[in-house]
Design a protein around this nucleic acid. Structure first.
Length: 484
RNA sequence: CGGGGAGUAGCGCAGCUUGGUUAGCGCGCCUGCCUUGGGAGCAGGAGGUCAUCGGUUCAAAUCCGGUCUCCCCGACCA
């Protein structure tokens, strides 16, 4: 174990200033850089690679559950957006408009999609005629524009990348089932691949998606004690089908409006990875989504190019044959020590060192990013061992994040104590709530904490408790937190 | 969108109060030698429309105004 200090220079320690640490790290690790436009960023190759891994792993799940990918237009005519007033009102402050094409003023303004319910709803009304056409299970990978006032790299940018699923069903029950199934898919995905434990549940009326009947979400707890919404799944009911006239003839030959859902996760997940796992030395990526899973650093001593490098290259190909993402850092202009620090900062889960001594002894040295443990491994066992250690790191990161979440989740029935905890420790706060929006809003005003989620699996006897703020009969046990 | 802070070499900063030769420093970068198992050393070198536009002045990084961008704290959101 080596002291953290001195490993990474020029990055503000996480404990000292979390926000600075976050933005400095993202730029130094080359995940992203600011574009010369307000609130816009460039996702650089190293950062985009994470998104590609997220896409690949999530896309597999989306397709395995019967959905297909498609692509809808970037622009939405204003009249389409206006049809659903609740939806429009929810988004209007953050819609970007196109008013001119070439030299000509457009007759109708075009919205740059803030989400695609409207245009997809319109298309569905053309495609759906009979119950035999249902369900429609479509997903699109796309970019979205929301004119946000306050932006932060990955967490909230004016343009971002996401996946949005839009489905249409015969019955309310089927739509509800889809909504819940997708939320569960998100939970499993985020916990398995990103190693981030989340709380799944239902959103309150106030936090619901504009135009939705129900919104479900998964919420993670970042290591500064603030909550981050990491994925949402909406049961849209018949709101949009009534507005866009998406009707079908049911099994009893009756005309019905379809029941719809929509759901998405975004490039925000990359920010969640940074904030959940990173430390003072830099990033710490779970192997499943790490751009580079193993970095091989040959120790450049003496005639290392003849003795050490070939061995390193051989190991590199062996690991690549196993579909591992490997980078052999044979650059001569940097010393091994420099490379160690650099790759730690950039979050590579496992480093493989090989020097003259190791070649002599037919071995390599593995060093874990998560706990800095050094493991000497005989050459013959390298592939198996690397595989095993990567699996352990993935598990360990999830375990550590889970521990953090537990340690930072409190429950209280005392409003004064609630305020203190939110003020000092932050984290998740479980508390009873009467179900009234007015109470929810007052708590937000007074403490800045919002109800992140009404978790599934409510405990017995909630009604015997009192609302945290008003003292009325409790309806739910909910998770409060300061949120991003 | 309100309140506060900032923009000088790739990065981190000094210089600005009190305008005046050639705008500095550390790291990084380039060349060479030498090194390399936790961010090596020496020597030489390159790199700047001082965010941007305008104003004041004989003279502006420095003074005044507009704009853009970033950071922090609030109201809104993936």
């Amino acid at each position: 174990m080596v002291k953290e200090e001195g490993f990474v220079k020029q990055i503000t320690p996480k404990s000292e200033d979390f926000s600075r640490w976050y933005v400095e790290l993202i730029r130094r690790a080359e995940l992203a850089d600011y574009a010369p436009l307000k609130g816009m960023m460039v996702i650089r190759p190293y950062g985009y690679s994470i998104w590609e891994n997220i896409q690949r792993l999530l896309d597999q799940r989306i397709k395995a559950s019967g959905h297909q990918n498609a692509y809808f237009p970037l622009f939405i005519p204003e009249s389409f957006l206006k049809k659903e007033t609740e939806h429009l009102q929810g988004f209007s402050p953050e819609v970007a408009w196109v008013t001119q094409g070439g030299q000509e003023e457009l007759e109708e303004r075009l919205a740059v999609r803030p989400t695609s319910e409207a245009i997809i709803g319109y298309m569905y009304s053309k495609w759906i005629r009979s119950w035999r056409d249902l369900p429609v299970l479509i997903n699109q990978w796309a970019n979205i524009v929301r004119w946000e006032k306050v932006t932060r790299p990955f967490l909230r940018t004016t343009e971002f990348l996401w996946q949005e699923g839009h489905t249409a069903h015969e019955t309310r029950e089927e739509a509800e089932e889809e909504t819940r199934l997708i939320l569960e898919m998100y939970r499993e995905f985020v916990e398995t691949e990103l190693a981030i434990p989340v709380i799944a549940g239902r959103k309150t009326e106030r936090e619901k998606f504009a135009g939705a009947m129900e919104t479900y979400s998964i919420e993670g707890l970042m290591s500064d004690g603030r909550a981050l919404q990491m994925g949402t799944s909406h049961n849209l009911g018949q709101h949009f089908s009534r507005v866009f006239n998406i009707r079908f003839e049911d099994r009893q030959q009756q005309l019905q409006y379809v029941w719809q859902t929509s759901w998405g996760v975004s490039t925000r997940l990359v920010g969640a990875l940074v904030m959940t796992h990173g430390d003072d030395s830099g990033l710490k990526f779970p192997p499943q989504v790490a751009p580079i899973q193993v970095v091989i650093v040959p120790i450049s001593l003496g005639n290392w190019k003849e003795k050490v490098l070939p061995q390193a290259q051989k190991i590199s190909s062996l690991l690549r044959e196993q579909e591992m993402r490997v980078y052999l850092d044979a650059r001569e202009e940097f010393t091994p020590g420099w490379k160690f620090s650099e790759w730690e900062m950039r979050g590579v889960p496992l480093r493989l060192e090989i020097g003259p001594r190791d070649v002599q002894n037919n071995q390599v040295v593995l060093v874990r990013r998560d706990n800095r443990e050094k493991i000497t491994v005989p050459l013959s066992e390298v592939v198996a061992k690397v595989h095993q250690v990567l699996t352990e790191i993935q598990k360990n990161l999830f375990h550590l994040a889970g521990q953090f979440q537990q340690e930072n989740t409190c429950q209280t029935e005392d409003y004064q104590e609630f305020k203190e905890i939110i003020e000092t420790k932050r984290g998740f706060l479980k508390a009873y709530w009467c179900g009234q929006t007015t109470c929810e809003e007052k708590i937000k005003e007074e403490t800045q904490a919002t109800i992140r989620v009404i978790p599934f699996g409510q405990p017995e006897g909630v009604a015997t408790h009192k609302c945290l703020r008003c003292g009325a009969k409790a309806q739910w046990l909910v998770y409060f937190a300061k949120a991003y």
